[in-house]
């Protein structure tokens, strides 16, 4: 059972939590443009656990990066938790990434020379959360994801599954409404992967909107909704 207790209750929303309209992303280079995401539109209601699936190169990770504000769209509109992400400037985007979404990377992307505690605490530090409260929150989160005893270790001293748990704790530290996970089990064995999925499922049960990229149909089966992509286009949207 998930022990994580969020600080504030999530207000029920009638509007979609995540919405994309005519979203397109072009990458230039080598004399030709690559259309990674092409005219994608969809809406996700609050509290849903959705999976973006598709073969390699279909544009699913790029779509997640666009939704999370770490890539800018070439055209189209993105609305996440009422924020028009496509219209944000650099500084506002940073604030959006810090407060409104939590990002989980396939390669964990923990800062290699900071301890697990400091890695998890980092978004709180960036947000200016008071020290004592942040310390309590980080330790609770580490307890929640089961690596409380690893707080003083460096990332490379942990297994892949433990590192991904630390990355999940980091994504939660500012209590975002939306969690974006890019192949969160891609670098893990099946047992560790299942444990991470269990953790994500429990977060979703607590009301977090969860959007996960995967190319594994079994893992996509954990999601309540699947967005299937091919060649940068959204080809089907299916409820579980």
């Amino acid at each position: 059972m998930l022990k994580y207790d969020i600080d504030s209750e999530i207000e029920p929303l009638t509007a979609p939590m995540v919405a994309a309209h005519g979203l397109t992303k072009l990458f230039s280079g080598g004399g030709a443009d690559l259309r990674a995401v092409s005219d994608v539109s969809f809406e996700l209601e609050p509290g849903i656990f959705a999976a973006i699936t598709g073969p390699s190169g279909s544009g699913k990770s790029t779509l997640l990066h666009l939704l999370g504000g770490i890539e800018k769209p070439s055209s189209g509109e993105i609305d996440v938790a009422g924020t028009p992400v496509h219209a944000l400037g650099e500084s506002e985007l940073a604030k959006f990434r810090l407060m409104q979404v939590g990002f989980i990377f396939q390669a964990f992307h923990l800062i290699p020379n900071l301890t697990i505690f400091n890695n998890v605490a980092m978004p709180g530090l960036l947000a200016g959360v008071a020290s004592a409260a942040l310390r309590d929150r980080v330790l609770r989160l580490l307890e929640t994801v089961g690596i409380r005893d690893k707080a003083d270790r460096l990332p490379h001293e942990l297994s892949g599954g433990q590192q991904q748990r630390a990355a999940i704790a980091r994504a939660l530290v500012n209590d975002p409404q939306v969690i974006l996970a890019d192949e969160p089990t891609g670098n893990l064995d099946s047992a560790a992967g299942d444990a991470v999925l269990q953790l994500l499922g429990e977060l979703n049960d607590r009301g977090k909107t969860l959007l996960m990229v995967t190319h594994d149909a079994r893992i996509a089966g954990w999601a309540g909704k699947q967005l299937r992509m091919r060649d940068g286009r959204l080809v089907t949207t299916a409820e579980a």
Binding site: A94, K95, I111, P112, L126, A171
Partner: peptide, 13 residues
Amino acid sequence: FVIGILKAIGARR
């Protein structure tokens, strides 16, 4: 590399 991660999790310039 660290700057990239920090930017991805919301650090401002």
